[in-house]
Amino acid sequence: MNWMKRQRLIGYVFIGPNLIGMTVFMLIPALFSFYLMFTDWVFASGQPPRFIGLDNFRMMVRDDLFAVSVKNTLLVLIPVPISIMLGFLIAVMLNNRTYFQKTLRAFFFAPYFTSGIAIAFVWMVLFQPTNGPINAFLRSVGISEPPLWFASPDTAMYAVLVMMTAGGIGYNMIIYLAALQELSSEQLEAARIDGATFGQLLRQIIFPLVSPTTLFLTITGFIGSIKGFGMIYAITQGGPANSTTVFSIFAYKKAFSFYEMGYASAVSWTMFLIILFITLIQWAGQKKWVHY
């Protein structure tokens, strides 16, 4: 008994510092925000929080920004499967089908590793509508009126999608490559001797073998996309005309432009529910295509 008590004490000494930090900076804020979402509290208004039940959610559903940000949040899911597919193809190539594998791997991974606010601004200039390199190229191949990209509400989201697709490929490639390197070469060799074409080999052998990795990448990719904020917000602030306002920007604006803390909490927990919902759908759907 004494030994068990001692063991328990030592255990808490080890996890204690981290546990205290987690409690202060994650658990308490999470509970606090859970409470706030049922109140109408506005920061620095001088009024104490008033309990209003689910009113914030009723207000949110009627908010114009809600519909826009749901639509945009669904749009930013598109780059995920595209960059997963491209990452997969590149990984298959870099797994014993090219020379200079390590150098190429570094080349593909570097854009992901360095992506951030700085690179977002590079994209903004590349997409500059009048003289930017992308539109200059489009004009030179005969498109006389290329899209205005970030400058127009109709096309800003497309520019965001291009930027996100390019940013995700390197990460997906590196994860697939690690998975491929753990496969036994026998299965792959057998298929090659049977005279399977490269396409058949990809679809029928390699892809099923790495399907757990694909599941991991789609789940984490969707979560990352839904949470994505910085690269979009830094260059567009959700505009023009709210055309790039995704859910995280919606929540941010309500909190830090309008200081409607109760309402903003409701918006951010809705975002959590969307993430949970999309993750659960994928988890349930995995039986159909994931082979362990």
Binding site: F25, F32, L36, A255, F256, W269, L276
Partner: peptide, 14 residues
């Protein structure tokens, strides 16, 4: 599983 965005408001106040 809780996204950062949920924590920004309470952390700001805290």
């Amino acid at each position: 599983m809780i996204p950062q965005q949920v924590l920004f408001v309470p952390k700001f106040i805290m």
